[in-house]
Design a protein around this nucleic acid. Structure first.
Lengths: 205, 205
DNA sequence: ACCGTAACTGAACGGTCGTGCAATTGACAG
DNA sequence: CTGTCAATTGCACGACCGTTCAGTTACGGT
């Protein structure tokens, strides 16, 4: 046998990426072999090299693709900068949680497999990740300047908030105690608390 | 050559664990070979099997040891249950951050390498991790009952807080912008916000 | 001075790894 | 119906994997 019937490069390419994501998310990059990925696709190991120059690129492309698409999606969902920070933060939290719940595998890979990237690939991914962090940080500092938020250290609050929000994707399961929307709503509340959003209904007794 | 001069089983055992922790934290369990660990110790690969039955146990023992010691340490630092929840939470946050900063490698391994555990080992580690989560959850629910904290969902707040606190160990570096103590203080503040600790100085205008 | 045994070597086992490549087959245009 | 090229196989390469074990050496007690 050689060429498969009904075969098309684009279809196989997509299957390779799918299989790689699924397997790497489950077993970890280093623990997954090219032969395993190939078996999942229904192809011999050698055929994978039509779609990736090597194993490392497979990982890198997944991560970069994920982060680029993440930043891109936010660009399209984000309110204009002149919007009040409170609203921008709420929008961001909902966006982040929805996005991360729907793409749990890619998210998982993107922060679990950083150390399996070669140095230059690592740098590029880090740069993208920092861009995303800056999105939050900018909202927080803007909110402080507006007088809408009150906290002492926007950088630290950013780190805490990122960790808190991204943490959701490590435990969220479909059909769990709460639907995704309800989780997002509660996390908006917690994000407001961290940011020190001026309480509206919270009056001292 | 066979036995090394000045060799002692206990010393080598410690070196093996040290090397394993360092290498696994840096490259990941699956990416580290027994020969690499052996080289780091200054010994042949076969010699490792005097100290561990297999590679899997090496990982499992590191993780279990870490979690058991973590729970144990908290047992000794924790205030009595009748202490006000605000104080217990502050104590917990400081303990958690200090502990995690000082043992960043073991912490990292213990939540990065979960999927490389065989099923029964995984169950035991999960049980320990849940025990630790319950520490926070108990403090939060006690605080709500006391009227010291105000939040809608203690379980979700627990998850958020764990993620927020443990996140520190992924970015903390000695000699960074803030010393560990200052970081802990700021995180105590953020933990209070998440918990909805009754504001003392925060009075509505 | 000698011995038992703890500590370790060095080689080997069967297996898997990532990757390269000549040969082969199917899709499709003309 | 033919020719071209995209898609894929099947095998090979050298390297490395976790683990075992017979043999060798140094330590500690007597």
């Amino acid at each position: 046998m050689a060429r498969k019937s009904g075969s098309s490069g684009e279809k196989t390419r997509a299957m390779v990426e799918d299989a790689a994501i699924r397997l790497i998310a489950r077993y970890g990059f280093a623990a997954v072999s090219m032969r395993q990925i190939a078996r999942e696709v229904g192809v011999q190991a050698g055929a994978l090299y039509l779609y990736t120059p090597d194993k490392q690129s497979l990982l890198f492309d997944i991560m970069r693709g994920h982060l680029v698409h993440l930043l891109d999606s936010w660009q399209q969902h984000s309110p204009p900068v002149e919007t009040p920070a409170v609203i921008r933060l709420e929008r961001f939290v909902r966006f982040h949680i929805d996005y991360h719940i729907m793409r749990a595998e890619k998210v998982f890979i993107s922060y679990m497999e950083l150390r399996n990237l070669e140095p230059e690939n690592f740098s590029e991914i880090e740069r993208l990740r920092r861009d995303y962090e800056h999105v939050i940080e900018e909202i927080l500092t803007a909110g402080v300047a507006e007088g809408a938020f009150e906290h002492t250290d926007s950088r630290l609050t950013t780190m805490a908030m990122i960790a808190m929000l991204t943490g959701v994707s490590t435990w969220y399961r479909d059909g769990g105690r709460l639907p995704a929307g309800a989780i997002a709503t509660r996390y908006v509340d917690m994000a407001f608390r961290l940011a020190g959003a001026e309480p509206l209904a919270e009056v001292a007794e």
